[in-house]
């Protein structure tokens, strides 16, 4: 039975009517109209659907829309803009990271939450923080350069 939910996404409230068990991913993509979180596996194994819920990275493909409550959701589109980019977005452009680019939500959103907590991380700490995310094109070397660059920009 569908229910009504109010989702706070990138600072704006959106009314969504959906099956409470429907993963947040589909609400964001099809009801809110944000295409940036991607469907990669539906199993929380790859990260392509990652968004922030109250600042923490979550996998929206397994998070029921009913579990979000009044939490604040931020997607990659809400992380920064060309005019006011997040350092990770700047670093991604500088390092020319993506190939197909389908995985970037996972890496950037996970790294953004990590770099907020951890200043001047070591390379090993960055790798540990990003472990489990998938990139099939094999852009790992460039991802690491970009996250290190962003870490430097964030002091």
């Amino acid at each position: 039975m569908n229910q009504r939910f109010s989702l706070n996404v990138n600072g704006t409230a959106h009314a969504v009517e959906a099956d409470p068990d429907m993963p947040l991913l589909y609400a964001l993509r099809n009801d809110v109209g944000l295409n940036n979180p991607h469907f990669g596996c539906g199993l929380a194994q790859c990260g392509a659907c990652t968004v922030h819920l109250d600042g923490q990275p979550i996998r929206s493909c397994i998070t029921p829309v009913s579990a979000v409550g009044d939490g604040k959701i931020v997607t990659l589109a809400g992380l920064g803009t060309p005019e006011k980019p997040h350092p990770l977005q700047t670093a991604y452009v500088e390092e020319q990271v993506p190939q197909c680019g389908y995985c970037i939500n996972g890496w950037i959103m996970t790294a953004a939450a990590f770099l907020k907590e951890k200043k001047k991380p070591t390379e090993a700490e960055i790798k540990d923080a990003l472990s489990g995310l998938k990139c099939r094109c094999g852009t790992h070397m460039a991802i690491l350069r970009a996250v290190k660059r962003a870490a430097e920009m964030m002091g």
């Binding site: 589109a77 980019p85 452009v93």
Partner: peptide, 9 residues
């Protein structure tokens, strides 16, 4: 030129 559009969705 397609990297920025990708990271800015």
């Amino acid at each position: 030129a397609d990297v920025a559009p990708k990271v800015f969705c």
